[in-house]
């Protein structure tokens, strides 16, 4: 078995789909600046036209996020459609809208996983970061999902407010019975870029973080997955300039973004077929404008603030 070149693939291997922009929370570190719906979000017909193409192109894996995906009126219809064709499905949620009935439905549909954001081992730090969030509700949702046998993961974003709680959070995750805990450096995009000074942990904070994290990784080895994503947003961008991912990032309005940290749009699923968008995506990574801007972003990280001001290429 050998290594992969994304250009050789007939279609993406993964679709990260922000199905809506609406969210009940106003997290200080939200990459998408979610809150209100954005103009032109895909309607039912456009959504199912897109989904049929996902199935026909044999795309094996889809992740739904938002906004808050459970607030989408067709959330379960979308999930049922994808799972009917045995497409792996991950849902990234703030965990505020999961009750027993929904957890049962999710369990029946056998999602790959439900990934719940829990940004603290205590209500205080979680709710300080996730404005209007309810830590108790999220922990209760985790319990319900796990009780129903759903493969459940926790995502934790370290910030000045919560970085000291990583060890406690991993212990909590284990006591709840989650499949895994995922963490990585905070991404300087969207609202996180606007709040960078108050959010970004210091080097000393990170030293403590990695020490605790590595202790917990060793402690739970073989019992629970604890995964640290090793790239920050700029390192990821540098890497992707050389090795673009075999994936597409679909926005709620059907536009397709090249990658989170760059503002470039390489297609519109309301007008273009998914196949066309995939070809555009492959070409876009060689577009001099893209390469030039990406290098500028790497040299001047403040330009990451442009990430959500979309530009067509």
């Amino acid at each position: 078995m050998k290594s992969i070149n994304f250009k050789d693939l007939k279609s993406p291997l993964f679709i990260a789909w922000q199905i809506n922009s609406v969210c009940n929370l106003e997290c200080l570190h939200c990459c998408e600046e979610a809150g209100q719906s954005i103009p032109g979000e895909m309607n039912r017909e456009e959504i199912f036209n897109f989904l049929k193409q996902v199935v026909n192109l044999h795309i094996p894996y889809v992740a739904l996020s938002g906004g808050e995906p459970l607030l989408h009126p067709y959330f379960f219809s979308i999930c049922e459609f994808l799972r009917k064709d045995n497409i792996s499905l991950k849902v990234e949620t703030n965990g505020e809208f999961i009750d027993e009935e929904k957890a049962k439905k999710i369990a029946q549909l056998r999602f790959r996983s439900v990934q719940v954001s829990l940004d603290g081992a205590t209500a205080y730090s979680h709710e300080r970061l996730r404005l209007r969030g309810n830590w108790n509700k999220v922990v209760s949702s985790l319990r319900i999902l796990i009780k129903e046998g759903v493969n459940t993961e926790i995502v934790f974003v370290p910030t000045k407010f919560n970085i000291g709680e990583i060890g406690q959070l991993i212990d909590l995750a284990y006591s709840l019975g989650v499949y895994g805990v995922y963490t990585g450096k905070i991404m300087r995009i969207g609202r996180a870029a606007q709040n960078w000074e108050i959010l970004c942990p210091s080097e000393k904070d990170y030293e403590y973080f990695f020490k605790s994290l590595n202790e917990k990784i060793a402690h739970y080895d073989g019992r629970m997955k604890v995964y640290y994503y090793p790239y920050d947003v700029l390192e990821e961008l540098k890497y992707r300039l050389k090795f673009p991912a075999a994936s597409l990032l679909v926005l709620p309005n059907g536009k397709v973004k090249l990658i989170g940290p760059l503002p470039f749009i390489c297609g519109d699923l309301k007008k273009d077929t998914l196949e066309q968008v995939w070809e555009n995506y492959k070409k876009a990574w060689q577009n001099p404008k893209v390469i030039k801007f990406a290098k500028e972003v790497i040299a001047q990280p403040r330009l990451l603030a442009e990430a959500n001001r979309w530009r067509e290429i």
Partner: peptide, 18 residues
């Protein structure tokens, strides 16, 4: 359970999605 196989011109891709 989480293995997906897709045929390609060069052969196949095996994706362990978990």
């Amino acid at each position: 359970e989480h293995v997906k196989i897709r045929e390609e011109k060069f052969g196949a891709v095996i994706f362990e999605t978990l």
